[in-house]
Design a protein around this nucleic acid. Structure first.
Lengths: 144, 144
DNA sequence: ATGTACTAGTTGCTTTTGTAACTAACAAGC
DNA sequence: GCTTGTTAGTTACAAAAGCAACTAGTACAT
């Protein structure tokens, strides 16, 4: 009687996702933090700019789903580190084109390589099929 | 020439995991926040106690991988809300047995049900096979 | 018994995040 | 022109998280 409760905490997807995200994020953190003194949000903004080229802050908010205040602060920080430059658009002076500087690009290249290695390392514990499926499931959940 | 760069931001597992975790956590947040005024950490602590019964703060730290200061403050908050009680152990007065009160258990039961529904809802976008695989992959990554 | 080392948990202070109000720029109606 | 509404981005203040130092209790060697 009352065997309905087969539901376990570890069955709860948001919980599992958080734990998994936490573990991997923590593992990767040293690469951008210790080496370049960047915060997670800064790293994410840098990565978006490196990957997709010129963007406005708004673009980054939407693509990365980061709140505009966080982006604003990250952009400021990256600017101070001379990793990015801003340029106002003459046709609409509210927007600013954001671009990585040379040194920002160097940092991006380096971290991109590290990220790739990190991913490859993680892959070794999956079969190719598992890896593909995992990515597609995550993308679906993340509504990407 | 130089076609090595097929690596995309969205291939990066920590990034994908974070996005997915963020989306689902945000979706579930209202259940414990609006209804019971709990913080995410409090909800996690409550859930652990509800699921596994009596635990010490240390136990929770290890199981949930939450830092002890966060647990300490969450326990304090839950105590104030009368959702849990502490009892010092006579054999080692450093430890405290933590238990949900009756009202804490009611809250747990309610949220557990909501969590179960939430999970079931998410499942509808997966096949049974995908769901099982997803969970096992996440558990592996989270080192659970 | 007492000095050293360790453990559970808390507290104070700093850093980071979240929220909401703000500035500056544009756009459209009148 | 000038009012009303909207958008990009910033800033000020409040909430939460992180870190390091602390208290209190235990263990164990001398």
């Amino acid at each position: 009687m009352d065997q309905k409760n087969s539901f376990e905490l570890t069955d709860f997807l948001p919980y599992l996702l958080n734990q998994a995200a936490e573990v991997t994020s923590r593992d990767f953190e040293p690469y951008y933090k210790k080496k370049y003194g960047m915060l997670r949000t800064e790293w994410r903004v840098l990565f978006h700019l490196g990957q997709y080229g010129t963007l406005t802050a708004k673009d980054i908010c939407q693509r990365a789903r980061i709140h505009k205040t966080k982006v604003s602060r990250a952009v400021h920080a990256l600017e101070q580190k001379r990793y990015l430059s801003r340029e106002q658009l003459p046709d609409d002076r509210r927007h600013e084109k954001l671009d990585l500087t040379r040194s920002g690009q160097r940092v991006f290249k380096d971290l991109e390589t590290e990220a790739q290695n990190f991913d490859r390392q993680m892959m070794t514990s999956f079969t190719e099929e598992e890896y593909q499926m995992f990515r597609s499931l995550l993308a679906r959940v993340a509504k990407l």
